[in-house]
Design a protein around this nucleic acid. Sequence first.
DNA 1: GACAAAAGTTGACGGCGCGTCATAATTCAA
DNA 2: TTGAATTATGACGCGCCGTCAACTTTTGTC
Lengths: 239, 239
Amino acid sequence: MTRISRKQLEIQQRETDILQIARRMLLSEGYDALSMDKLAVELGTAKGTLYNHFPNKEEIVLALVCQAMQVRQQMFGIASMVSKNTRERMMAIGLASEHYVRQHSEHFAIEQFVSNSTIRGKSKPKRQELIRHFETQCMGSVSTIVQDAIAVGDLQLPSMLTVQELVFGFWSITFGSHVLTFDRPGLNELGINDAWRAVRMHGCSMLNGFNWLPVMTFEGSEVVFAGLDARLKVHFGLE
Amino acid sequence: MTRISRKQLEIQQRETDILQIARRMLLSEGYDALSMDKLAVELGTAKGTLYNHFPNKEEIVLALVCQAMQVRQQMFGIASMVSKNTRERMMAIGLASEHYVRQHSEHFAIEQFVSNSTIRGKSKPKRQELIRHFETQCMGSVSTIVQDAIAVGDLQLPSMLTVQELVFGFWSITFGSHVLTFDRPGLNELGINDAWRAVRMHGCSMLNGFNWLPVMTFEGSEVVFAGLDARLKVHFGLE
DNA sequence: GACAAAAGTTGACGGCGCGTCATAATTCAA
DNA sequence: TTGAATTATGACGCGCCGTCAACTTTTGTC
């Protein structure tokens, strides 16, 4: 029956609409600008209807976080396979992260709400599982590279350091610098002219420090980055 | 007149009390648990009196942030002078940051509110300047080490990288990992057993990657860390 | 097509939050 | 002492979230 699907589709479509409006509100003026009352008005329904879709405001935010993490996960998956060389694959992950933050800043900005324990605390277990799933997936993409590198002899894992802990290091440096670049005002005035470039260099430096072959100079790494960038842009659908 | 100072001191003391109560509230249940009404009740005054001291809730939070940043700055200052060797001084900064997060977690947790643009946006320019001051100071402590290292030949700055950008890298890795360690639940389940140790290793790796002399193995770095840790604990007044 | 049950919708309401402001109390200065 | 200046008060306006009893629409059945 067309009647059946009519209503069903309307409800399904509304969920999409809610998230779209909520995202715009969140991005425009931050968390406080996301008001359930205003959201209902913009959606053109009563507030009660909103609560048929999401049990509370936090769940809406975390639904957006999940959308964001999914985008990141897909980009990581692509980046982890863009080369045969393990070192290049690792660098591609860094580049993918950079692209994610710069080209999908609306997702990156929202992704940060996952750190807010107040928001996380009010969410359903189902949602937390989903978030955990995306986190594990992203980490898995990178872990695989590390394991491959060890297998082919490009990398010797330092004693007392697990694969995941090494991934954690790379995660820290990209996450940390991207958050700093994104959330803090006026890094420029502190003498940091090209934060993006600096991050790439630091990641490269860390891999060099681990003796991840082929060890490369900064100039060499820039060439590699340029090549990877071109290939990634194709996969990411840029130009 | 004792009368003059009586009232003055009372008001001054109250400001301290406000911040103390506010900190406890913030730490107990997060930002939402800090309520101006409840704060006034606990303080034993009317709400209006609160607003004689701080123009809004956000200013209270940022005042606490400033206290936190001051603690960090002092610890960085000490760490930057704990050795003659530039590489060790750099490693000491990392250790100081670790101590700050672990021993003064109540400050570290509150420090993160500075990234919240909603809160920052409602603060007075004066406060933002102060925050900027502490940031500059912390960065300065580390920049000095880098410059010293270059001066004595322990480090050659890569072309196209400023001193501040190198500091930014170290900042990113410590900030990033400490935020991840602190704010994200269940890193353990992701296979990261000793995040703190991992962070130290990664910082060390990055410095090795920059060929910051003396380049050291992980085992060697652990010895250096142990020595620095003992000295820092004395300065930080632990045991 | 009629009709009852199920599913979906509504918006007024309770409770709580922040920041204001007229009024009152206190301190200060002469 | 006394009037001006400073400080304290808490009721108030407004906006927020989430609920819920009443209402409307859809669905399934005869």
